[in-house]
Amino acid sequence: MAVIEAKGLKKEFKVKVKEKGIKGSLKSILRPKYKIVKAVNGIDFNVEEGEIIAFIGPNGAGKSTTIKMLTGILYPSSGEMKVLDIDPTKNRKKLAYKIGTVFGQKEQLWMHLTPYDNFKFFSAIYDIPEKEAEERIENFIKVFELEKFVNTPVRNLSLGQRIRAEIVASLIHEPKVLFLDEPTIGLDPIVKDNIRKLIKKMNKELNTTILLTSHDVSDIEKLCKRVIIINNGEIVLDDSMQNLKYNYLNKKILELRLKDKINFEKEEGIDVIKEKGTNLKLELDTRIKSISDVLKLIDPENIIDINISNTPLEEIISDIYKEERK
C-alpha cells in the first residue's frame, strides 16, 4: 500500500528581480519585475509502507519544497498528493497526528528544557494522555539509549545528542511516516553512525516509513533500498539502490604502484586520472575495455601493487546531477 502518493506536483514561487546597485533598488520600487521560479516542476512518485527512501538532489533541487508540501507546510501550485490517504492541504491537523518531521537545520526543542520535559511538551501537543506519555518516553529512553542525557537541558547537549533528542521527540506520537530533512548535517562520523542506527531501529521496530534527504552519500548507502534523485524540480531517477549501483558501476578505478615509470598512451575506455611518479590511477569503462585488456598493456614484472575498486557512489550521484545540468 502506498503511504505517499504525488502526482504532477508543482510549486512555483514568484520572486522579485532587482538590478544591481541603488539604481536597481529604486527601479524595483517604481516598476517591480518578477520572475516565476519553478521549485518543483510536476513530480510523480509513490512510497510504499515500511520503505526507507532516499530523496536526494543538489542544493535548490526542490527536495525540501517537496517535503514541505507533503507535510502541509506549503500549498502546492498544482498537482495532487496524499500522505496516508490524507490530503495535506485539506486536512493538515489530521495528518500531523500521523507523521513526524525532523529538519536538521531547524530546532524544534526548547533549549532550556531537558529532553524529558520536551518529550512531555510534545506529548501534550499530540494529546497523549499523561500516563501513556510517560510509558512511551521511558520506552524510548531505553530503546534509543538516552539515559545519559535525558535530564540535561538541551542547550548543554552536544549536537549529536540534540539531534537524537529531536528525532525521538518527533516519534513521541508514533508516526507512521517520518520525514527527515538532512538529519545528519554537521555531525561527526561516530554520531552519524549512531543516528543511522537509530533510524534503522525505528524502521525495524515501529515499521515507520521514512523519507530521508541527505547530502551524505553514506547515509543513503547504509539506510536506503530505494533512491529518488531530484534536480531542477524534476525527478531524474527513481530506482532501487541495487539497480543504481549495477547500471552505473561500469566504471572501475585501477590504482597501480609500479617499479619504473611508464608512459601510458591514452586509449578509448581508459582515462588517466592521476599520475605521480611511479603511481598511476586509471578509470576504465568496462563496456569498452576489460581489466585484463589494461593489464596486458603493462609488463607484469613492473607491477608492485594493484588495487581495483568501484567508482564511489558519491561520484555516480554527482555525475547524474551533472548530466542533468547539461
Binding site: L74, Q105, M111
Partner: peptide, 14 residues
C-alpha cells in the same frame, strides 16, 4: 497562510 513560502534559514527555538 496559503501564501506562506517558508525558508531555509537555520533556526533555533530559544
Amino acid at each position: 497562510l496559503k501564501r506562506y513560502s517558508s525558508s531555509n534559514l537555520m533556526i533555533s527555538k530559544i
